[in-house]
Amino acid sequence: MGKIYTITSGKGGVGKSTTTANLALGMAIAGKKVVAIDLDIGLRNLDMILGLENRIVYNIIDLLEGRAKLNSALIRDKRGDNLKLLAASQTNSKEDLSKEKFLDLLNLLKEQFDFVFIDSPAGIETGFSNAFAGAEGVIIVATPEISSIRDADRVVGILEANGKHNISLIVNRIKPEMVKKGEMMSQDDILQILAIDLLGIVPDDPKMIEYTNKGEPAVLDKISVTANAYINITRRLMGEDVPQLELKPKSFLRKLFERL
């Protein structure tokens, strides 16, 4: 039986889809059978981040409404067999998804895959409640900004009220230089407010835009710190005990080196 994780945040633009793409691909590289579901219906972009845009024929609405078979709706990753994408529909709205049918689909996918990652839409409306309804674990992505933290806090409150207690946190886009100067909240400050488990921290990486535009998630760039951060998180999800990354501000030499 596979495990279902929902990736959510409350606030938009904090890196939910990027995180989903990297965790799903990281798991696939580690040899697990994974399906990534884009539930941001009407605003799909997980396909672009994974570089699979041109392969979409059928989407999740087509599948749930019986216009497509499961095998033709699951898009095979161009890098291997382990990862499958279930794309969102761009022309429908969040309300077009039937929750009951979606939960049935999750039960079916659980039998065929080791991990199911659901990319939740931003906000706390129908789309969000559909996204976490069938999940065993919820991963909250937050950036070290007060607006993101407050929204994450709201989401944790809603999840707890709905009986979801396996909630963990990924702190995204940490800038070690700013944390050191006291200009940015540290992961400890954030954890103190949210009072949930820390799943991992991901440093801010200017190359992220490039990865997204190319459709090649950061985990593929194996020498980068960011890839390491994501790989550590996937290992923790597989039950390994991996220490948290210690992010240090970049030295002058290192910055010079990167420029050359």
């Binding site: 933290i149 806090d153 709201r154 409150g157 707890e160 407010i193």
Partner: peptide, 23 residues
């Protein structure tokens, strides 16, 4: 912990053993 979006209305005094978060 009382989180963003949650609210309490109390008749009498209230003691909170935890944080009252923003919102």
């Amino acid at each position: 912990t009382i989180r963003s979006g949650q609210s309490y209305e109390i008749d009498g005094d209230m003691v909170l053993f935890g944080n009252l978060n923003s919102g």
